[in-house]
């Protein structure tokens, strides 16, 4: 199960005198959904193109399914489905024709290609639009057709570059669900890049944070936060009355608490560990009525935001 599918070893890509990707080492194992996260221009697409052998790394080695992407890109491309960020289809062909064309390029027999195309169109809810010209497809439909297109060759790995770009929230939800199902059902390895943090957080097993060509952190959302900040990662919201200064002082004295903040409806407590039980106990002991207590993990959003906030500070210092 823990078989390595994608391996990048000390990969760098240099454009003129600027590094788009620098000293990137990354391992993704089979069946994993990996999120490549980073702002625009961080080197996500460059990394993906290098994985596919469409772009040659300046140094380092790229291996996909045990095959060297630089030397044998065609074999890699036979096993990897790629959904580019600005996906387009031949507008004067129908959705089905577009898929069958892809199948032909993959040497699938015509009959089998048609069957598979119809099956996949059903899977991405495009059966009704199968005979419509893709020029008339909406953005969301195109993206779903793109997903079907990627799956035409029955790949071992699918790489999705900004799959949720420009789709409405409902469409995003649907698409992400599809991706997740596919990953689990067919045992595919999924690599997806995005700068939409919530979405990545929803479906990815592991996330790599990319900034300016460097992979600055990787792991699941929890460890990512731990890697990035040695500060607190948990926020507990408490609604209680009355809130006395004594209560705040007592809470602050708790070992795991970093900060207590008074907000309109109650208290916001930032802490290192889940200590809601202890907090509620303290509040009750102080004679206040506890009406609500909830905890929230730091989402990627906060990680992201805090990282970049911190970066400005770090750079200026």
């Amino acid at each position: 199960m823990n078989q390595t599918v994608i391996q990048l070893d000390q990969v760098s890509k240099q454009y003129d005198d600027q590094f788009a990707v620098k000293d990137l080492s990354l391992t993704i194992s089979k069946g994993e959904i990996f999120g490549l996260l980073g702002p625009n221009g961080a080197g996500k697409t460059t990394t993906i193109l290098m994985l596919l052998g469409l772009s040659e790394p300046t140094s380092g080695s790229v291996t996909v399914c045990g095959i060297d992407s630089v030397r044998r890109p065609i074999e890699v491309k036979r096993r990897v489905g790629y959904l580019p960020d600005n996906i387009g289809f031949y507008q004067n062909m129908t959705g089905l024709e577009n898929l069958v064309y892809t199948a032909e390029l993959n040497n699938l027999p015509k009959k089998q290609a048609r069957e598979r195309a119809e099956y996949l169109l059903e899977k991405v809810n495009l059966t009704d639009a199968a005979y419509k010209k893709t020029g008339k497809y909406s953005r969301g439909m195109k993206q779903r057709l793109g997903l079907a297109d990627v799956l035409m060759k029955n790949p071992e790995v699918i790489i999705l570059d900004e799959p949720t770009l420009g789709i409405d929230p409902e469409g995003v939800r649907e698409l992400l669900k599809m991706i997740q199902e596919l990953g689990k059902e067919e045992g595919m390895t999924v690599l997806l890049s995005s700068h939409h943090l919530h979405q990545v957080q929803q479906i990815c097993d592991r996330v790599g944070l990319f900034v300016k060509g460097h992979l600055i952190a990787e792991g699941n959302v929890q460890t990512l936060a731990e890697q990035l900040f040695d500060s607190a990662t948990l926020r507990i919201t408490v609604h209680a009355s009355p809130i006395t200064p004594e209560l705040i002082r007592r809470l602050q004295e708790l070992e795991q608490v970093e900060q207590v903040q008074v907000v309109k409806s109650g208290l916001e407590i930032t802490c290192y560990e889940d200590i809601s039980a202890m907090i509620s106990k303290t509040i009750v002991e102080m004679g206040s009525a506890l009406t609500h207590i909830s905890q929230k993990n730091f989402g990627l959003d906060e990680i992201y935001h805090r990282y970049f906030e911190g970066r400005d500070l770090r750079e200026s210092s």
Binding site: L52, L54, I74, E75, K77, R78, V80, G81, Y82, L83, P84, N86, I87, G88, F89, Y90, Q91, T102, L105, N106, G146, D149, K153
Partner: peptide
């Protein structure tokens, strides 16, 4: 410009 180039070249063809 149509965005079909990268899709086409990610197929197993030289």
């Amino acid at each position: 410009n149509r965005g079909t180039l990268s899709r086409l070249l990610s197929q197993p063809i030289p």
